Simulated scan of single mutants.
Amino acid sequence: MELLRQISVTCFSASYLVVLVLEALRFLGRVPGRGLAVVVMMGLGIFTHVTYLTLRAASISNEANIGRLATWTDWSLMVALGLAIAFFAFYLRRPDTVIGLFFLPAILAMIALSRAVSNLPAFERNEAVEVWRGVHGVSMMLGSAAVLVGFLAGAMYLVQSWRLKRKQAGSSLRLPTLETLQNLNRSCLVISTASVGVGLVSGVVMNWNRLGMIPWTDGGIILSGVLFLWLVTATVVEYIYAPASRGRKIAYLTLASFGFLVLAMTGVLSSSHGADQSNAPVQPSKQDVDASSESLDNEAAMETIVPRGQS
């Protein structure tokens, strides 16, 4: 842990800068080992980036009335992390493209912005809880909607495939082409994975701010995590399969994703995780505890001087 605490913004910034230089070397022709170096440096950059944000959030005491990951610096760094993950995923999919020359300057610009706004005050914990609750709700809603659309696209794909085999696709009941449904299926899988991932992380941060701890054993968190792991697995499997066999397998994966979504929603709605927590108490700060104690002491002192009920 002491070694990890030495990680700073310079560590992942330098990694991303090295990747930008490696991407620029494309113009010099084929450079042996360049692709492997990009993968290694991006992996190192994302790892140190996530570690830095996690330790930064953990360094805030439960007694402080400051929200975790609730400053403009934190949010700028999280946007940079999101761009880095997106670029890495695209690069692993199509390493022959030059999208790094577009993504990496934006990533470095967001990191620079995080330094420029570092003097702005942090949000209080109550405000942080509300912000992260909003992000959590919108993200999970978008992820659930994407899973549902993917489920419908998968069902239509299987029906259309069955009708084509029996030469019934030209009847009055017309459905989109298999290619259209396959592309829609893939897009929904990617969107749902990203949205549920953001929703899971924002839910964890929200509870961390609200309770001062992360309730890992909460049924909602566990089932949301299972859904996210399944979506990641389905997305990876979808990209591994050859184009000739991809369509039907994507349809089956999205149908299974719908099953996982139903399981997760059932667990969430049947537990306290799905209850209205808008009025749930937030972990009190040290200042609040001290103020409350002082108020009680003053009240006790006044009762000693003037008995209750007398003026």
Rank of each mutant, 00 (worst) to 15 (best):
V306P: 00
V117Y: 03
M78E: 11
A256G: 13
L178E: 00
I222Y: 03
L261H: 05
I60T: 13
P121H: 12
G35Q: 14
S139N: 04
A280D: 15
V159R: 07
G274V: 08
I85A: 05
F258E: 00
F102W: 06
E303W: 07
S161P: 00
A244P: 00
F47K: 06
A242S: 08
D96L: 04
V31S: 06
G203Q: 02
T48R: 02
V21L: 04
V39W: 03
N62S: 12
A64I: 00
V289E: 14
L229S: 08
V237A: 15
G150R: 05
L178T: 01
T193D: 01
T266A: 11
H273Y: 15
F47I: 04
L101Y: 01
A300F: 11
T266V: 13
A116C: 09
I66H: 03
F228S: 14
V201W: 07
H49A: 07
A37E: 01
T54E: 02
N62A: 09
V232R: 11
E124K: 15
L200C: 05
S311C: 10
V196F: 11
G150D: 02
L25F: 11
T51I: 06
R248S: 00
T235R: 12
M78G: 04
P121N: 08
P121F: 12
V198Y: 06
L211H: 04
A80V: 00
G212T: 13
R26L: 11
L101E: 03
W230S: 09
I240K: 11
L4A: 13
K286W: 14
F103M: 08
L263K: 02
A80H: 05
W132H: 14
V117L: 09
A116P: 00
P281G: 12
T177W: 01
